[in-house]
Design a protein around this nucleic acid. Structure first.
Lengths: 339, 339
DNA sequence: TTCGAAGAGGAAAGCGCTGTCAATATCCCG
DNA sequence: CGGGATATTGACAGCGCTTTCCTCTTCGAA
């Protein structure tokens, strides 16, 4: 492991001062062609790369932006993260991720993850969902550029990028109603989670607007994971409650639900229609392809990154409104008259 | 945006020298209880957090380890990344990711991503697959701790963690043969990709060992993505070639294949059996659940991280052998006699 | 009471880089 | 050919923190 060379080494090699090397590195000031050539030659000879840590220290900016989320392994976050990388690709900024999965029980630990990022002096923070309290987020926003995705924080409206969950759920449910379904089960997300609450609200509202009764037995709570979708359906079936359609709070739960239905011999969509929420990439490949409310996670990540760049540039974040779209595929169909 | 406080501020506040503050921060030397208390109080009052960038500069270690991969958005990588985070969770190290998706055409750009990491002076690098040339990887290994996952680099055997792709594909194919299938199509991975080549080899070897003829028309190449699985199946069907089973080079292609089959009215597994490779998390939730060769991505990531920690500690990486396992679910069954 | 050892804490020298400031060199015009 | 303007360059002071190195106490033993 031979020592990696420093700017000082290059300066000595090229017979110039450190300042000059720095100047050719940054193009911050004119340097005579002859000297520049000498420096460049030395750099090439040593395969020299400036130490960004040192540069960060003196410039006071680390050129990295922190991204806080619950689980980078979940497809929804992975996709957003991918979008963030994309959005940052041409900037000199790099994302640094911190997930809190392993210890998500304790909200305190989410704060720890945030501090991990802050200690590394990230220049900005992008928060994906997360259960950190609004107040703490506002405190962060007072310190450095902050963009919040898939969540909306009172007082930070201009820096939040979220879709209208109520509206999305409303559309999904209304679609099912339009197909003739009246006994529509809802697999809700984690109790207490804002998205879960909003989507439940949209479901209820659609029912109410259609003059349909709300059956509490048809609403069962999961936790946004596939396994819970499966569990919820088992429970519904065990209760003997009749239903011809299922609206799941997210696609992952919808996958689990479809598996549960399949295991019990129900055909989708012939026997039961299923609609999800998120439009994960894989939802176009399920059997049958899933009808779902689109939450463009990749694009949201990309847009969030661009907004962050703008914020870092002291411009307005200019976060757009995200339209909610129902993607109609094959998992929901007209209710059979015979049913 | 009020200024964030520095160690100097704390020292002044507490009426001690910077050295003392540093000492209580690191516990590197005894400090009188009275002074320690003063310092701690000042720290608490200011909510002071040491600047890890500065510390990294003086200590010569950034406490971050770089992770290079093709696409953090792909479920396979996302899962490994998740494992890496887990493996690093209790260490003071943080991963810093760099994907090369957007420009994967040019191998040159992968090198650029690697440099992005090196410029930030990561203390070690974990490479996930990637198409960076072996030689370059060896050069990196000479500079700093390196662990390579899901790929094996000659000369770096002890630092590589990979499953036996040939064996895995062999098992999958033999399983299908054992089920009575003789016309088994193979949806190969990206031409030129080592994994793709190895899996194809395993498939061929199993056929040969069973005395089955190899039909070139039954082998069609994709690119490891869902869309290509779909495309491959379309092509197979268009060719009018007979087959009762499909072995896909990875689960994603298997998903696409299943959709293609479904679209054409074939039932799985009744009409066509399908086997994948990887055992992605979602494969347990497809309809029917997918029989596949397990590549424990999460665990591989975790193990790689631990090996990296050991390397950083000047110990032997001690990378274990990963057993290959065929996970039997519902997507492949005995060939119907009638067929 | 005196001396040495050990304990505590401060001063200062960097880590690798940038950016200011002043010095030197170069150049134009009258 | 002189004067001032302009272009280049080097010296140097940090960025925030760690880590010798060294001084100053304090305390026990002789």
């Amino acid at each position: 492991m031979n020592k990696v060379s420093t700017l000082e080494d290059i300066a000595r090699e090229a017979g110039v001062s450190a300042s000059t090397v720095s100047r050719v590195l940054n193009g911050s000031k004119r340097v005579a062609d002859a000297k520049r050539a000498l420096v460049l030659a030395a750099i090439a000879r040593h395969d020299y790369r400036p130490n960004l840590v040192a540069r960060g220290l003196v410039r006071g900016r680390s050129m990295t932006i922190g991204v806080l989320m619950q689980d980078i392994g979940s497809p929804f976050f992975a996709s957003m993260v991918s979008g963030i990388e994309r959005g940052l690709d041409h900037a000199a900024y790099r994302p640094m991720f911190a997930s809190t999965h392993w210890r998500s029980e304790h909200q305190e630990d989410e704060a720890r993850s945030l501090h991990l990022l802050l200690e590394r002096r990230v220049d900005g923070v992008i928060v994906l969902a997360s259960s950190i309290p609004d107040a703490e987020l506002r405190a962060v926003a007072a310190q450095l550029p902050l963009v919040v995705v898939a969540r909306s924080v009172p007082g930070l409206e201009t820096q939040c990028l979220a879709i209208d969950n109520v509206e999305g759920a409303y559309r999904a449910t209304r679609y099912l109603i339009g197909l003739g379904h009246t006994r529509i089960a809802h697999l809700a997300g984690t109790p207490g989670h804002p998205d879960a609450a909003d989507r439940l609200t949209g479901y209820r509202r659609a029912l109410a607007d259609a003059g349909l009764p709300e059956n509490p037995n048809l609403i069962v709570a999961g936790d946004f994971l596939e396994s819970s979708g499966l569990r919820c359906v088992e429970q519904l079936l065990a209760n003997g409650e009749q239903f011809s359609a299922v609206f799941a709070a997210n696609d992952q739960m919808a996958y689990g639900a479809m598996l549960g239905l399949y295991n019990h011999g129900y055909r989708i969509p012939a026997d039961v229609s299923v609609v999800g929420f998120d439009d994960q990439f894989l939802s176009a490949y399920t059997l049958p392809p899933l009808t779902t409310v689109r939450q463009p996670s990749f694009e949201m990540g990309e847009v969030a990154a661009q907004a962050m760049l703008r914020l870092l540039n002291n411009e307005a974040p200019a976060l757009p409104q995200i339209p909610v779209d129902l993607i109609i595929r094959k998992s929901a169909v007209l209710l059979r008259q015979s049913a």
